[in-house]
Simulated assay, not measured.
Amino acid sequence: MAEPNMIYKISVLLLLSKVDIPLSNAQIVQFFLDKEYTDYFTIQQVISDLEEAHLVSLSQSHNNTLYSLTDEGSQTLSLMRDKVSSAIEADMVEYLSNHKFEIKKDNALTANYDLATGGGYIVHCKFTQDGHTMLDLSLHASTSEQAETICNNWKVRHEDVYMSLMDTLIQ
Rank of each mutant, 00 (worst) to 15 (best):
V12H: 13
G73H: 12
H54V: 01
H54F: 14
M134R: 11
G73C: 10
L23H: 13
Y162F: 15
E145H: 02
E102K: 12
H62S: 04
P22V: 02
M163S: 07
N63G: 02
A147Q: 03
D34Y: 09
L79V: 03
A53I: 00
S85H: 06
A87G: 03
V84N: 11
I10Q: 04
M1E: 08
L109K: 07
D106T: 04
A87C: 02
H158R: 10
V93F: 05
L55M: 13
M92D: 01
A147L: 01
D20C: 13
F127W: 15
E159R: 15
I7P: 00
S86E: 12
I10S: 04
L66K: 10
S68N: 10
L69K: 08
H62P: 00
V161Q: 03
C151T: 03
L169C: 02
V161T: 04
I7T: 10
K155A: 05
M6E: 09
V123K: 06
E72W: 14
L165H: 01
E148G: 02
G73E: 05
H62M: 00
S78L: 06
M92Q: 09
S144I: 11
E52H: 02
D130N: 14
S164H: 06
T65F: 15
D130W: 07
K83D: 11
S57D: 13
Q27F: 03
V84A: 09
L137C: 04
V46H: 10
E148Q: 10
S142A: 15
E145Y: 02
E89C: 11
F31K: 07
Q75P: 03
A111S: 13
E159N: 12
D39V: 08
T65G: 05
F41G: 08
A87T: 10
S24I: 03
L33E: 09
L139P: 05
G73D: 05
S59V: 09
D82I: 00
M166A: 11
T168Y: 15
T143V: 02
V161Y: 07
V46C: 10
A26G: 06
E51G: 04
E89Y: 11
V93D: 12
L79S: 13
D82R: 04
M1P: 04
A90D: 06
K35G: 04
N63A: 08
A147S: 07
F127C: 02
K35S: 14
N5W: 03
D136Q: 13
S68E: 14
E36I: 00
K100R: 15
F41Q: 05
A111Y: 06
M80Q: 12
E148M: 06
I47Q: 07
M92C: 01
D34Q: 13
A26M: 09
N63D: 11
Q146C: 03
M92R: 05
Q75T: 10
G119C: 08
S48V: 01
T143E: 09
I43T: 04
A141M: 09
Q44T: 04
I103K: 07
M80R: 09
M166R: 12
Q146W: 05
T133D: 12
D160Y: 12
W154T: 00
N5K: 13
T110K: 12
A108L: 01
E145T: 02
A90K: 15
G131A: 08
Y95G: 06
A111P: 07
Q129E: 15
S68G: 10
W154K: 00
L69R: 05
V29W: 03
D39C: 05
I88W: 10
D106A: 15
K104L: 15
D136K: 15
L14I: 00
Q146H: 11
L69I: 12
L79R: 13
